[in-house]
Amino acid sequence: MPQMSPLWWEILYIMFLLMFMIIIMIIYYNKEFNPQNNLNKKMKLCQFKWKW
């Protein structure tokens, strides 16, 4: 029979993984929906290329 780790080790490990995933998601969505980025994208879309 294999030796089992204490329950609190497993809980700590699961909590670490959850916090790690949440932090990565926050960083990703913060970069994705940054208002400065959206403003720059809209400014580029709104620029007209005039041909005289």
Results as ranks from 00 to 15, higher is better:
L18Y: 11
F48I: 14
I22G: 07
W8R: 09
W50A: 13
Y13E: 13
W9T: 07
K49G: 05
P35R: 00
I23E: 00
K51E: 12
N30D: 06
N40R: 10
K44N: 14
F33L: 08
K44I: 10
L39D: 01
Q36M: 11
M4F: 11
K41I: 06
L17T: 07
M1C: 03
F33E: 07
I22T: 15
I24M: 08
W9N: 09
P6F: 00
M21D: 11
I27W: 02
Q3A: 01
L45K: 11
M4E: 03
N30V: 08
W9E: 12
M43K: 14
S5E: 12
L45W: 05
F48S: 06
I26C: 03
K44H: 12
K51Q: 13
L17R: 12
M1Y: 06
F33C: 05
I23S: 03
P35A: 02
Y28Q: 14
K41H: 06
N40Y: 04
C46T: 14
K49W: 03
N34W: 00
F33Q: 13
L45C: 00
P2C: 00
Q36K: 15
F33R: 05
K42S: 13
I11H: 00
K51C: 07
L45Y: 07
L39G: 05
F20T: 14
N34S: 07
E32V: 08
L39Y: 07
S5T: 04
S5P: 06
Q47N: 12
N30W: 09
M15W: 03
N38I: 13
M4C: 05
K44Y: 11
L12W: 10
M19S: 15
K51I: 10
